[in-house]
Computed example of a mutant assay.
Amino acid sequence: MTLLISHRFAAALVPAILLVTACSGEPEPTQAEKAAAATVLGAPPGANDDVKVANAAASNVKESSDLMEFAYSYPKEAAEIPKLAEWLDQDRATKRDALTAESRRDQALAQKEGFPYRPHSHLQAWQRVTNTPRFLSLSSEIETYTGGAHGMTNFETLIWDRNKTVRLKPLDLFTSGKAFDAAIRTDYCAAIKRAKAAKGIQPPDEELPDALESVFAKCPPASAQTVWLGSSDGRHLDRLTIAIAPYEIGAYAEGDYRINVPVTAALVRVVKPEFASEFRAAR
Rank of each mutant, 00 (worst) to 15 (best):
M1Q: 12
A10K: 11
V14T: 12
V14E: 11
A16C: 14
A16I: 00
L18G: 11
L18K: 11
L18M: 12
S24C: 14
G25S: 14
T30D: 11
T30K: 05
Q31W: 09
K34D: 09
A35G: 01
A36C: 10
A38D: 08
T39M: 08
V40E: 13
G42P: 09
G46E: 07
A47D: 10
N48G: 13
D49Y: 09
D50A: 15
D50R: 05
V53Q: 14
A54H: 11
N55G: 03
A56E: 11
A57V: 08
A58T: 03
V61W: 01
S64P: 01
M68Q: 05
Y72A: 00
A78I: 04
A78Y: 00
A78F: 00
A79V: 07
E80W: 09
E80Q: 15
P82F: 03
K83Y: 03
L84G: 00
L84Y: 00
A85F: 04
W87M: 13
A93F: 05
R96M: 02
R96S: 03
L99S: 02
E102H: 06
S103V: 00
R105T: 11
D106Q: 14
A108Q: 15
A108D: 13
Q111F: 07
E113M: 13
P116I: 01
P116H: 01
P116M: 04
Y117S: 09
R118M: 07
H120D: 00
H120V: 00
H120G: 01
L123E: 11
L123S: 06
Q124W: 09
L138Y: 03
S140C: 15
E141P: 02
E143W: 08
T144C: 03
T144N: 10
T144E: 15
Y145P: 00
Y145H: 05
G148K: 02
A149M: 14
T153C: 03
I159F: 03
D161Q: 06
N163T: 14
P170D: 06
L171T: 05
D172Y: 05
F174D: 08
S176V: 14
G177T: 06
G177K: 04
F180Q: 03
A190L: 13
I192V: 12
K193D: 15
R194V: 14
R194K: 15
A195T: 12
A197F: 06
A198F: 04
K199M: 08
I201M: 06
D205Q: 08
E207G: 13
L208P: 02
A211C: 10
L212Q: 15
S214W: 01
S214R: 11
F216L: 04
F216S: 01
C219N: 08
C219L: 08
P220Y: 12
P220R: 10
P220H: 12
A222H: 04
S223W: 06
S223F: 06
T226W: 04
W228Y: 11
S231W: 02
D233I: 09
D233K: 10
R235N: 14
L237A: 02
D238Y: 04
D238H: 04
L240A: 06
I242D: 01
A245R: 12
P246C: 09
Y247A: 14
D256T: 07
N260K: 14
V263K: 03
V268D: 04
V268C: 13
V270W: 09
S277H: 13
F279N: 05
R280Y: 05
A281T: 07
